[in-house]
Computed example of a mutant assay.
Amino acid sequence: MAKIAFIGLGNMGGGMCANLIKAGHTVAAFDLNAEAVSLASSKGARAADTVSDAVRDAEVVVSMLPAGKHVLSVYFGADGVAANAPKGAVLIDCSTIAVTDAREAHTKAEAAGFLMVDAPVSGGVAAAEAGTLTFMAGGEEAAFAKAEPILKGMGKNIFHAGGAGNGQAAKIANNMLLGISMIGTCEAFNLAEKLGLDAETFFKISSVSSGQCWSMTSYCPAPGPVQTAPSNRDYKPGFAVAMMLKDLHLAADAARAAGAEIRVGELAESIYQNLSDRGFGGLDFSGVMKDLKGQL
Rank of each mutant, 00 (worst) to 15 (best):
A268S: 14
I262Y: 03
C186N: 14
A143S: 13
H249K: 13
V121M: 15
F280I: 07
C220L: 08
E35W: 03
A45W: 06
D53L: 02
G167W: 07
M12T: 05
L197C: 09
G44W: 06
A98M: 06
F159Y: 14
K246L: 00
D118S: 02
L177Y: 05
S122T: 09
A111L: 09
G24I: 02
I7C: 11
A83L: 09
A229I: 09
Y235I: 02
I262N: 04
A147H: 11
G13W: 01
C17Q: 12
V37G: 06
E193L: 01
G77I: 10
A254E: 15
F6N: 04
G139P: 06
A192T: 02
Y75S: 03
N175H: 02
G259T: 08
G14C: 00
C213S: 15
E35A: 15
T96E: 09
C220T: 08
G15R: 04
G224F: 09
A127V: 02
G162R: 05
R263G: 04
A5K: 04
I21K: 05
D93F: 00
N19C: 06
M216N: 12
F30A: 03
R233S: 10
D57P: 00
G282D: 14
S206M: 15
N33C: 13
L177H: 04
A2S: 14
M216A: 02
G282N: 15
G294N: 11
G287L: 15
P149V: 09
A161F: 07
N84I: 07
